[in-house]
Design a protein around this nucleic acid. Structure first.
Lengths: 147, 147
DNA sequence: ACCGCTATCGTTAGCAC
DNA sequence: TGTGCTAACGATAGCGG
């Protein structure tokens, strides 16, 4: 074995040319991005929606959303429909509680996703889960979105 | 003063209580998130849209989009957005939407739990082997699964 | 191709100004 | 409240299996 030659090297932020390295980097950094977003949601109570289209012909779409991509995007495009000051305080508290629950569930789903990846060694049934996936955040092939 | 540089400490990913620290962290991490997104765009040629709503009453909106938030979101939704609503109606729809998201996430969690049971019944798994000494990983709190 | 490892790089919490 | 610094922490490029 060659002597230890490990560890990352600095990488310029320019388009990667090697296709397979690009795919690996895309997967790793996409996961990192979603994790950062999740942490920002939890730490600061921010609401975040992310949509990512993969490069190349695959052109798959991945998304992260708390509370949901659709809800936040509607608000973004509508430009002035924040939740506050209407209906009753009861509703508002209810919403806060639901948001907390959502964050917990999102974290739980993320944990389970990680566990499931480890479980892959056991079988292929995970694919079934992915096929049915939808909700607050998830990944899906683009063609599955145009139902 | 004895130059005892303390540096950062580890921080739990839970809601920050100190309001001013929260604001600083929100700004820093939001900038970091957008930078990560930018790098992912450049390195891999991905297309990314991000919408962030700040916490608290300010509730300002920040966005990142390459090529643009609107374009990517339209492609993601694959549909026209609903017309503007009056506020109470909007709140009501909002609640309904959140309930829907909650149900989806709950279904997803249950789905994964079911899959995990099947995986477990199917045979050995990496995680199971690793955790066997502790009496079985599936009985442990999710947070105990330090990956 | 995928997964784990780990040295190394990049991000950021806590301070000082 | 914002800017800059630095050490510690966390993300990840490159590699081996």
């Amino acid at each position: 074995m060659p002597r230890r030659r490990k560890g990352r090297k600095r990488v310029d932020i320019v388009k990667m040319e090697n296709e397979s390295n690009l795919q690996v980097t895309f997967s790793k950094r996409r996961a990192g991005l979603f994790k950062k977003a999740s942490e920002l949601c939890t730490l600061c109570g921010a609401e975040i929606a992310i949509v990512v289209f993969s490069p190349g012909k695959a052109n798959k779409v991945y998304s992260f959303g708390h509370p949901s991509v659709e809800l936040l995007v509607d608000r973004f495009l509508g430009r002035d429909l924040p939740p506050p000051n209407n209906e009753s305080r009861h509703n508002h508290l209810l919403m806060n509680h639901q948001n907390a629950v959502l964050r917990e569930l999102n974290k739980e789903v993320m944990n389970m996703e990680e566990i499931l990846q480890m479980e892959k060694a056991c079988g292929e049934s995970i694919l079934e889960v992915r096929r049915r996936a939808n909700g607050g955040w998830w990944e899906a092939p683009i063609n599955a979105l145009n139902l």
